[in-house]
């Protein structure tokens, strides 16, 4: 399945785009997505940390993804 991944902050600079498509096996998890992204964009590993959000909420590593999910990379936040 193809997952559309939104990027914000420094993740947008790393991807060179505000959204990218990532191909994952059916029922792929957040961990699978991380591995795939880090393989393609090694600079992600230099971040202090980053979270994955699914449908506007922070996701856990074991959560399964579905094609229609809204997925986003959340690099360290710095509001306020």
């Amino acid at each position: 399945m193809n997952i559309n991944v939104l990027a914000f902050g420094i993740a947008k600079d790393i991807f060179g785009a505000s959204a990218i498509e990532v191909e994952l096996p059916e029922a792929g998890t957040v961990t699978d997505l991380r591995s795939k992204l880090e393989e393609k964009y090694p600079r992600l590993k230099q971040l202090a940390s980053y979270m994955i959000a699914v449908n506007d909420a922070y996701a856990a590593d074991g959560d399964a993804l579905q094609q229609q999910d809204e997925v986003a990379i959340i690099p360290p936040v710095s509001g306020g």
Partner: peptide, 17 residues
């Protein structure tokens, strides 16, 4: 999920990244 970028005379940086 809000991000702040600082602009200096000689560059810019995403805070806390």
């Amino acid at each position: 999920p809000i991000w702040k970028k600082e602009f200096f005379e000689d560059g810019e940086v995403w805070v806390a990244a």
